[in-house]
Design a protein around this nucleic acid. Structure first.
Lengths: 216, 216
DNA sequence: GTCTATAGTAGGATAGAC
DNA sequence: GTCTATCCTACTATAGAC
């Protein structure tokens, strides 16, 4: 049997194919981030990768499939890093500091993913809703419960854990989503690592002073 | 001269025309907020208003013109309410509290405007850039200077005024832009006035404790 | 001012040769 | 797997009757 006509045509994951798909997803992410779902043409993505539109469709049969893959990639990254309750021995202060810095790092390293996610949310999360309910919500509730414990233990003042998270998310993602505005107001061509460091210092400082029970 | 063939055909601002234009802008705002610029068809807007697509084009010769009007309307509202330095006798605490509540009220009363603005910013502010530089930036710099004075006077701790504003904006606008996510996590069909009140209490409390020099 | 008809175009998707 | 050719739909916009 020297011929390769085996039943399944996807036998080998084709290292090169995997690589090309990764390049496509990356280019798509950038495009969707900048112009949104309907503002992005398949041809634009194909051009960015250096293949024809028709060839792109060979890899991703339609636009929505590609979009879902992009969203999924970002969300998986996020949920992995956004886990709050990891080290049971760490102090509340440490955990919160680590959390804020982690979120800011994500905004720095993957701003386009954040923007695609933002578009999706503003549009009412048509494709993400179910995933948010099944994956984000349980994690959120666990983390809220932990914050509540800290308050009960007298470590934190009595603040709303829910709104604390909303604020941290908003304040960290804004450096990715609204980078244009921030650059403009800071008079910079592009946000540098230093700017994210400043943001981290400010945010951790204000949040901790704002919610820790016996702030100095 | 009983016939009305006067030179300028726009003589009377036509109360009804003004009214219709307002309805169009309002419908357009809702549509752009939900699906973005390219995701919105002129026909969709026309249907929402109850006129034909072609008739809509009579009032707004093209989509971009309409989009600019929508953006402009929101921004004018914002800049008006976002002025920070108003009452020179008010205390820092009062001004900041008032500012946060004002921004949250805007998110509550005009979430669609906020979303259109968010889309525009994520997309790199292609049509808004100049306006932000000419109108938002001077206001921002004035407000930053005032915060710096408060720090010099020992009223506030030494925090970055710039990042303070970025955080307040992000944390207040998130209740409009990402309402979907927040509703979902709070388990509500729609955000109520009460939720905005909770947000205001949390935010003012945390921010003031976080930055005022001698927080209790 | 409002309608019908229609031009013009962009973009998603399929069929089939190679 | 990649290309050419092509179809089809959705959309912006214009021309002209009423």
């Amino acid at each position: 049997m020297s011929t390769r006509k085996t039943g399944a045509s996807q036998r080998k994951p084709n290292a090169s194919r995997v690589q090309l798909e990764a390049r496509i997803i990356s280019a798509a992410e950038k495009a969707f981030a900048l112009t949104g779902y309907s503002g992005t043409a398949m041809e634009t993505i194909a051009e960015a990768v250096g293949i024809s539109k028709q060839n792109l469709i060979y890899y991703f049969p339609n636009k929505e499939t590609l979009y879902r893959r992009v969203l999924r990639k970002t969300l998986d990254m996020w949920l992995e890093k956004m886990a709050f309750t990891e080290d049971p021995d760490a102090s509340a202060t440490d955990i919160i500091t680590h959390y804020i810095r982690g979120k800011l790092e994500l905004s720095y390293e993957n701003p386009d993913g954040s923007r695609v996610f933002a578009h999706e949310l503003i549009n009412g999360a048509p494709v993400l809703k179910d995933y948010l309910i099944s994956h984000l919500k349980p994690q959120f509730e666990k983390d809220v419960a932990l914050v509540r414990q800290w308050t009960s233990a007298g470590v934190l003042r009595d603040v709303s854990p829910e709104h604390l998270f909303f604020t941290i998310w908003a304040a960290t993602q804004t450096y990715a989503d609204f980078a244009t505005q921030i650059q403009l107001l800071l008079g910079k061509k592009k946000l540098q690592k230093k700017d994210f460091e400043d943001a981290a210092l400010f945010l951790t400082d204000m949040v901790l002073h704002g919610i820790v029970a016996n702030s100095p």
